[in-house]
Design a protein around this nucleic acid. Structure first.
Lengths: 111, 111
DNA sequence: ACTCGTTATATTTATAGATACATAACGATT
DNA sequence: AATCGTTATGTATCTATAAATATAACGAGT
């Protein structure tokens, strides 16, 4: 019966969302499957939504995040750039640090 | 053209939201107006939504947050308890601290 | 008993966001 | 040029949440 403090964090650029938890999940699924459609299916997300998220991320990030290829052997695929992987890593660690920080902040109070 | 990190925080009890930014705004408006309907109008929120938020807060908090009175002189009104006021204060300060924390975390990275 | 402005509550309507569906485009391989 | 599995993109349909609307209940004061 105690209070818990929760948070959501995300990274913006010029007022638009670049990265949040959902997009990080998508990036991880892309890395695991090598395909946008398979990643979407794995997450129970529509392909269209996954696709528009990748567009938004590539458009807004300082460097490309995902490389998409159409046609050819296997029909195509999607891969993360090394910049995309570092985006995942920093987001995850900051998120963890934030949760720890908030928990200690709350325990200092007398609610 | 730099990244900014944003966050939303809230306090839960047993999986249910007790307090977030919107509810804090509502509590402030109640304190200022002394009335739930006026507070809702001030925030551009429907009365019904404001009312159900107060129910949720009073139900989930360890102590009452808002005292409502019906009928009588002036028709009734709503007031914050001192516990409600302390809820506002701690939420606001933790929120500010969190923003500062996240900003310093992001500047440490090389994105 | 009547008035007043408020709280209390149910029902209906709107709106936005996601989802489903459909189809085109792509290009290496055969 | 036919095939294949993927990316690319538009359109239509749900659906869940919020908002609007309507009405009842309340109780101190007159």
């Amino acid at each position: 019966m105690n209070y818990k403090i929760k948070s959501k964090i995300w990274i913006e650029t010029e007022g638009d969302i670049l990265l949040g938890k959902g997009r990080v999940n998508l990036l991880n699924a892309i890395e695991n499957t090598g395909s946008l459609s398979k990643a979407a299916k794995q997450l129970g997300m529509s392909y269209k939504k996954a696709w528009s998220l990748t567009q938004a991320m590539n458009e807004r990030a300082k460097k490309p995040v995902i490389i998409m290829s159409v046609g050819g052997k296997g029909g195509g695929g999607a891969k993360l750039t090394s910049y995309g992987k570092s985006l995942i890593n920093t987001f995850v660690t900051i998120n963890e640090n934030c949760n720890i920080f908030l928990e200690t902040q709350l325990t200092k109070t007398s609610l």
